[in-house]
Amino acid sequence: MTTAGAHPRAGPRQQERGIPSPRTWTRLEFLLAGLLLALAAAAWLLTGALAMPEMSSGILTGMQPMGDGAGAVVPPAAFGFFLLTWVVMMAAMMLPAITPFMVGMRGLLGARATTGTLAALTAGYLAVWGGAGLLGYAVVRAFETTAMGGGPVAARVGAVVLLVAGGYQFTPLKRWCLVRCRSPLALVMRYAEPTADSRFGAFTVGVRHGGYCLGCCWALMAVLLAAGVMSLLWMAAVAAVITVEKTVPRPELTGRVLGALLVGLGVTLLVSPGLVPTMA
């Protein structure tokens, strides 16, 4: 006996993850995946248009202290612009990552998965990352202040960011969040009814899934802030790492390798902070 809307041809591993095999996707599910990826592509283009040159580098890539001209932008305007850009960036980086979850939810709910339901799920997910932008703004401002202390000081602070991010890869919390971010079947099954009952219920489920992904990826986002929050190159690099973590067959091994690389780079910069400009 199968759940309504589920895909009986999906293999055991795919069913464990709550993600039907692409071979079993319906036309509507392919359209849903295509729409999410198209929105992500549009968000990448918009990020490129919004990107400010002075924020394309960070304390890991030779950030220069902002001059007096920066004071021409009042703090509320700067804060609002940062949040706008941050939300667009998160849409660009995370919409591809949640596509399998959305397809799995649509397959489980079947005809009950209306456009409003799926939009509320996506909005809830992005709301979590939008909220994270509040802390992200404070971190960026702290990095700007650090850059005023000179290159070696900024480089060593950046090295600490790398060490923290690398060390987090080995923690039980990272593994716990990654398992739930990679395998959302329990979330999908448990909250299928509230998702179908109301858009608020769907929004809440999106928030829960976004919380797991934030717990999984916050340290990598800190590295992005330190490398250049509006750098398309570093955005692509971090997005690629996140995608690999969520799709490779052995995520634990991948996480440990990534953690070791981040820790090794952090130690290198602590010893030789003069290497920072070469990373730009």
Rank of each mutant, 00 (worst) to 15 (best):
L126I: 03
R256M: 08
A92W: 05
T171M: 15
S198R: 02
I242W: 06
P12Y: 03
R9E: 13
M1T: 13
C181G: 06
Y137V: 09
A186I: 07
T61H: 08
M221P: 01
T114L: 05
L84T: 12
M279Y: 13
T115R: 14
T171G: 11
A142G: 11
V188P: 03
M93V: 09
G201Y: 01
A72M: 09
A142D: 08
G266H: 00
H7F: 14
S231R: 08
T204Q: 13
W86R: 03
M55P: 01
L253S: 11
F143L: 15
R190Y: 09
M89S: 08
G206P: 02
G104R: 01
Q64H: 11
L84H: 09
G67Q: 08
L109V: 11
R27P: 10
V238P: 07
F81N: 10
A77H: 09
G124N: 00
V139G: 12
P251F: 04
R112I: 07
G11E: 11
L50K: 10
V73N: 02
L83Y: 11
A127H: 00
R156F: 01
V205Q: 01
V179Q: 13
A138W: 07
Y168L: 02
E16V: 14
L135P: 02
A72P: 00
A132G: 11
A260D: 10
M1A: 12
T115Y: 10
S272N: 12
G274Q: 14
E144Y: 07
